[in-house]
Design a protein around this nucleic acid. Structure first.
Lengths: 233, 233
DNA sequence: CGGGATCCCAAGCGATACTG
DNA sequence: CAGTATCGCTTGGGATCCCG
């Protein structure tokens, strides 16, 4: 009996119910990765290097039963897992966790790496919509082995993995030809510093792009949710 | 060895780190209750009726080690646990969970009850700041055995438990004499319906207050984060 | 009586091996 | 590729006990 009957907390309330549904170990990390798009079992396992296969299997079953994840057979591409509407509604939860967690992060542990979907999730959490800058801008970030391409356009953000992903990207037709304005190579601490808005640029290497592009990126991606409104009135 | 060394996820990222710190079973419910104010061990145990005492003890130790909770001896009042600044920064996480969870809630289970701090947390998550209504308004909500008094004033929200709490409330000096404009008695489903903005008033009993006060309450407390902006430009 | 610590059992987790 | 099966270990659950 892999799918356990949700050991409850005995409370009628939102937080308790949410934690019953997605509070098991690894569950929200699966959701985080699926927020980047549909993934095959193997993709998920690759993005969660330390998850035991039986646990991934259990979590996917439980998330399906909770109405968060759906199994979708794809023509000649096998089988993918994707979020349901309710699953996508978990984005604010993941974002809140990202913001808090990045503020707590120090040095990376020896065996800690930045994963592709984790990087994408971080960028989504750090993104600040700004309708006043509607022109699309594309940035490529590399952290260790992983890389993503980030395209911003006004309030819109698109993060796509780069690399030997077998999964065909939807390749939004509305994001046609945008030149890459900035390409960065970061180490984990550099990524943290960048998203924290720290002035120090250790661990941040600009591969291509001018300083203005870097400054613009820093302005649009910042982790803390400082909701001060600066000017009066 | 009560305090385990944070079985990590092997990832350098915000969500992973956050879940390492506060992702253990019961941990975020402890945080939720502490967001309502400092609590003694016994208060926490009473608010989390199904938590085994050893687990509560373990969680509190882990949360202290994670820098989320602090133990504070109080003159002739024993010992309380309270959130640190980092712990208070978890409020957005709890709020996001509340919002998602209330949207998922159906019927209460047989042994599920609404707890006082859970009710307070739900109200905080549902509150919509509105600076244009600065006059303080006080509402009393009862759900089963628990009751809270909610005072709103513009962007400000204050939720205090009512009942035989041993713990002395700070009793904010800035909230002097406000008459109770509305008093409601709800069953769990009525609370859910109220916060969901459902028109149906089953399970919602008005003890005192006029229909206008109820309508005003419904306008200021609504769970879904509908961020549509209705009118054009 | 508040604030835990201890014990024992069951259930969940982790690693590896194996299968359709 | 996409899981299932098995097994030992670790946690959680529930009850009891201890200490100031």
């Amino acid at each position: 009996m892999a799918v356990r009957q949700a050991r409850g907390f005995g409370q009628y309330g939102g937080a308790a119910r949410a934690l019953e549904r997605v509070g098991e170990r690894w569950a929200l990390l699966v959701v985080r990765d699926l927020l980047a798009g549909p993934r095959r079992y193997t993709d998920l396992k690759a993005g969660l290097p330390r998850i035991p296969t039986n646990i991934l299997s259990d979590r996917l079953k439980e998330l399906q039963e909770a109405g968060v994840v759906r199994r979708v057979p794809i023509a000649r591409c096998g089988l993918v897992y994707e979020l349901t509407d309710a699953g996508r509604d978990l984005a604010p939860v993941v974002t809140a966790l990202e913001r808090w967690g990045w503020a707590q992060l120090g040095e990376p542990g020896d065996d800690e790496a930045v994963t592709r979907d984790g990087l994408a999730s971080a960028l989504r959490a750090a993104f600040r919509a700004d309708a006043s800058e509607p022109a699309p801008v594309r940035t490529v970030l590399r952290v260790g082995e992983v890389a993503v391409a980030v395209t911003t356009a006004g309030d819109d953000l698109d993060v796509v993995p780069i690399g030997d992903d077998a999964l065909p990207q939807p390749l939004r037709p509305d994001a046609p030809e945008v030149e890459t304005a900035l390409e960065l190579d970061l180490d984990p601490q550099g990524l943290r510093a960048l998203l924290a808005g720290e002035a120090d640029a250790a661990g941040i290497r600009v591969i291509s792009g001018d300083p203005g592009a870097l400054a613009a990126f820093r302005a649009r991606f910042r982790m803390q949710a400082d909701d001060v409104d600066p000017a009066a009135g």
